[in-house]
């Protein structure tokens, strides 16, 4: 049977985690069909058709699909899912919001946030904030799976010429209404896919002090992350949060500044290739996962760090 992959996009472009989800889907079955639901999103359909791992694009448009409400999407996915053995999406806020609604309508027990496809019915997934890994076997005939994007490589975006099939929309769900989305625009790389991430915690003491972090982020072309405590305190906005209830990041380099290293924070970053911790408390748990630990006051260390980086002229933007 085939895999139905639900595409995340903004009606203009494919969102990057969809590429990771396509890779994961292709490991379940090579017959991957991409389902694109949106409004005025033909460009996205075209891009999808060019992805070599995508064998068919299903494209549906309607006004009520413009803002991706799960209440509108789920009945459509359910309607066309009968020819598929698996429904897949990424385990970010898009997929987390949508997939369980589909799974319940299909009377399927969803498998969330998988990090590995062992076989079409066996998956590996973290539980307890990544402090344990469970191998699970789904016994449902139709499987609903969300994938942890950082555990799968993004697929190639070229080499394909999949047919695009138009399908009919389902009815609008009128009891939920989209009002607005406040997206924080930034020229920096996306947190989820950045090669370098520098994060600040409660130790930063204020939002203004995050300037120390952003100066270094500019220099390293890094994304900016934060602990929940820093977000809760209002130093920085929620989309920067890394951890069990925030984002999972797996950069080549993760720099944790003024972050103690609670298990809920580690859940979001401990798979990073190289971890640096800057903390004035030598006993902070963050040091137990750090490749390089610097026991220092961040207000002294960060300006010095910037200065040292300025001395290197090898950093590529």
């Amino acid at each position: 049977m085939s895999v139905l992959l639900i595409v995340e996009h903004n009606n203009k472009e494919i969102k990057s985690f969809t590429l990771n989800a396509i890779t994961a889907s292709s490991q379940i079955d090579t017959d991957v069909h991409a389902l694109l639901i949106g409004k005025n999103c033909s460009d996205v359909a075209k891009s999808l058709s060019e992805i070599s791992l995508v064998k068919k694009v299903l494209h549906v448009e309607a006004d009520h699909y413009e803002n991706f409400l799960a209440e509108n999407f789920a009945p459509l996915v359910v309607k066309i899912s009968k020819n598929y053995s698996h429904v897949v999406s990424s385990a970010n806020t898009f997929g987390k919001n949508l997939m369980p609604r589909i799974a319940a309508l299909l009377d399927t027990s969803q498998v969330s946030d998988i990090t590995k496809v062992i076989s079409p019915d066996r998956f590996l997934r973290p539980i307890y904030a990544g402090n344990a890994f469970a191998t699970v076997k789904s016994t449902d005939t139709k499987k609903c799976v969300t994938i942890r994007p950082t555990s799968f490589e993004p697929c190639e975006v070229s080499g394909g010429s999949a047919p695009i099939e138009k399908i009919e929309p389902t009815e609008e769900f009128t009891s939920s209404k989209f009002i607005k989305r406040e997206e924080v625009k930034s020229d920096r790389p996306e947190l989820g896919t950045a090669r370098i991430v520098i994060s600040g915690g409660r130790g930063m003491q204020s939002g203004d002090n995050f300037k120390l972090i952003s100066d270094i982020a500019d220099k390293l072309n890094a994304a900016i992350g934060a602990s929940r405590a820093a977000v809760d305190a209002g130093y920085i906005s929620n989309e920067h949060q890394v951890g069990q209830t925030g984002k999972v990041v797996v950069p080549d380099l993760y720099i944790a500044v003024g972050i103690s290293g609670a298990i809920q924070h580690l859940a979001g970053m401990k798979e990073s290739k190289i971890i640096v911790a800057i903390n004035k408390d030598g006993e902070a748990p963050i040091f137990s996962v750090a490749d390089y630990g610097l026991e220092a006051d961040l207000f002294e260390a960060l300006p010095q760090f910037l200065e040292e980086l300025n001395k290197l002229n090898t950093i590529q933007k």
Partner: peptide, 25 residues
């Protein structure tokens, strides 16, 4: 409906080192 086959510890990270200065870092 989802059978738990087995639960494992995650791989532990190898302990790193402490550096003494920003320059060394």
């Amino acid at each position: 409906r989802v059978q738990l086959i087995k639960v494992e510890e995650p791989p532990t990270r190898k302990a790193g080192i402490k550096v003494s200065s920003v320059a060394e870092l």
